[in-house]
């Protein structure tokens, strides 16, 4: 069982982490995301609506999740990031690589 909020929307796995992904929660996110991807979905949307903070450890597990999705023939993108999370994603260059979207629906269609 995973504690990570998730749902399948139009075949895409939508992950909705709460509050923080930092060094203390990153491993659980990574494991949960990997277990969910093993069930078959190839496209991943990170719904960052509830995310207040992401540390470099958090970026790392987004990357490993993205690589896993990509090696399965899919991809990963990010939706609904708040300003301070957007800032971290911009500094890390993740905004350009994975894309930022204003809604989960837009994110899913961007992966199609």
């Amino acid at each position: 069982m995973t504690s990570l909020n998730h749902e399948i929307v139009n075949g895409a796995l939508v992950l909705k982490p709460s509050r923080r992904i930092d060094s203390s929660s990153a491993k659980a996110f990574e494991d949960d995301a990997a277990a969910l991807l093993d069930k078959g979905p190839k496209k991943v949307v990170i719904d960052a609506t509830d995310l207040d903070y992401i540390s470099s450890a958090g970026l790392r597990v987004i990357l490993t999740t993205a690589k896993k999705a990509k090696s399965a023939g899919g991809g990963l993108t990010i939706a609904c990031a708040k300003n301070n999370v957007k800032e971290v994603l911009a500094v890390s260059g993740f905004d350009n690589i994975f894309g930022l979207h204003d809604s989960v629906a837009q994110a899913i269609s961007a992966l199609a």
Partner: peptide, 11 residues
């Protein structure tokens, strides 16, 4: 001063 681009070695 910065340029877009991700960490070295990621991709």
């Amino acid at each position: 001063l910065s340029t877009p681009g991700i960490a070295i070695g990621m991709l």
